[in-house]
Nucleic acid binder design. Sequence first.
DNA 1: ATAATTATTTAGACAAAGCTAAAAATATGT
DNA 2: ACATATTTTTAGCTTTGTCTAAATAATTAT
Lengths: 220, 220
Amino acid sequence: MTLSEEDYIKAIYHLSKGKTAAVSTNAIAAQMDTKPSSVTDMIKKLSEKNLVFYKKYKGVSLTESGSSSALAIIRKHRLWEVFLVEKLDFAWDEVHSIAEQLEHIKSEKLIDKLDVYLGSPKVDPHGDPIPSKDGKFKKSIKKLVSELPIGAAGICVGVNDSSAAFLKFLDKNKIALGDTLQILDKEEFDGSVQLKTSHATIRISSQIASNLFLEVSENQ
Amino acid sequence: MTLSEEDYIKAIYHLSKGKTAAVSTNAIAAQMDTKPSSVTDMIKKLSEKNLVFYKKYKGVSLTESGSSSALAIIRKHRLWEVFLVEKLDFAWDEVHSIAEQLEHIKSEKLIDKLDVYLGSPKVDPHGDPIPSKDGKFKKSIKKLVSELPIGAAGICVGVNDSSAAFLKFLDKNKIALGDTLQILDKEEFDGSVQLKTSHATIRISSQIASNLFLEVSENQ
DNA sequence: ATAATTATTTAGACAAAGCTAAAAATATGT
DNA sequence: ACATATTTTTAGCTTTGTCTAAATAATTAT
C-alpha cells in the first residue's frame, strides 16, 4: 500500500465513523484537500485492490480488509502520539503532524515493540482510543462536557479549540490535562455547567463546556 | 527535498567519503540499485538545486549545502538506530532498514528532542559516529581489527558480515557487542591476530580480523 | 415533471522518478 | 594512434498521483 493509498483509506475511515451511509467523493476531496476527480481516480484503484466497495455515483465504504488497514494506521498514529508526548515531552497539540508522518513507517515488529515500550496504552494524548493489534478497541470514551449528564466524572483529555484564549482560560482555572473533573449541575436555560475541579467548584459557559473533552468510563 | 533526492544525496555522501575524486554515475547507480540513466536525470535535478557540482561525463560531488543535508540525514538515521536498540530492544543488525524509513521524517524539533532523550549519543549501535546538529563529528573512530596496530584496544562495535556462521563464531568465543578487546600480536605471514578478550586470549584468522570492528580512541 | 443546480466521472495533460535502447563521450589495449 | 570497450547521456516511454475542463448523472426547486 502506498503512502497516498493509506491516507485515503484513513480519510474514508474517519468520514464513515458513526454514519452508516457510503462516503461521498466530495467529502473525501474536502477532507484530503484535493479535487474530486483525483478522488475518483484513487477510489478506482482502491476498489481494484478490494479495499473499498464502490458503485459509480454512489460513494464508497471500506471493505473488511480496508477497515482493518485503516485501524492499523490509526493504531500506529496514536501509539506514536503517546511516544511523542510521554517520552519526548511534546505538548499534546503539536504531535499530530509528526504522527501523520510516523504512521506510514512499515514494520510490524517496530509497532509491537513500541507498544510494549509504552506499556500498551489504551488512549492517545487526545483521549482517543488506540485499537489493539487485532483491530478492536473500546467505543469512543471521549465526550464533551456538554454531552455528559449531571454526576458524570472523567479525566480531562483534550480540547476542540486550542486557541490561546481558551487555553488561557483553562490555565486560569487550574484545569490541566489529566485532571479529574465532575459535573455537579447543568443549567437548562443557557447550557452552563457547574464543575468540580481538583481545586475548586466553578461554573463554565456552554461554549466552554462544548470545547472540553473528558474521558469517561464506557457506560456513560 | 523529496525522499528520493535525500536517498541520492546520502548515497553520494557515502561514496565520496574518504576519496577526493568526483563520484561516477555508475557507482551511484550500483549503490542505489538503479540504472545509470536514472542517475543522470536525478543528478541534473540536484545540480539545479545546488546540492551537487556536476560536469557532464565528469561525475558529481556534494556542494556545501548538499553535504550538510547529507549529514543531517545521517544524524537522523543514527539517532533512530540508537533509539531502536537502546529503547525498543532491537538487535543491532536489524535496525538499518527501519532507520532508513525513519530518517526521512521531517521535524527538526523531533530530532532535537530525540537527541536529548537519548542523552546525545556520539556513536550509533554499529560504532559509527553521529554528526552533531551543526554537521560536525569526530572522524571515523571505527576500525577493523585487521587495520589496528599491536597494542591497540577498543570496544567491539560491529561486524562487516553478519552471516549466521560468523555470529556463531563470536558467540562461541564469548565476544559480544560492547566487549573490550586488545590486540596482542599480529602474524605477518597469514594476517592472523592474537586477541585478548574479557574471557581469554585467542588467535583469530585474518578473515575474522577483517570482519570485526572496534571503536578506538581518536589518535589510533 | 421539468429546469436548474450540484455531484461525480471522464478525458486529456503534467510532474516525478523510473525504465530501455540508442547515441555520444571517455578510457583502454595493443 | 587507432580500434575497441566502457561509461555516460539522450530520447522516448511508463506509472503514480495530481490537475483542469468538459460531460454526465443525481438531486432539488419550482
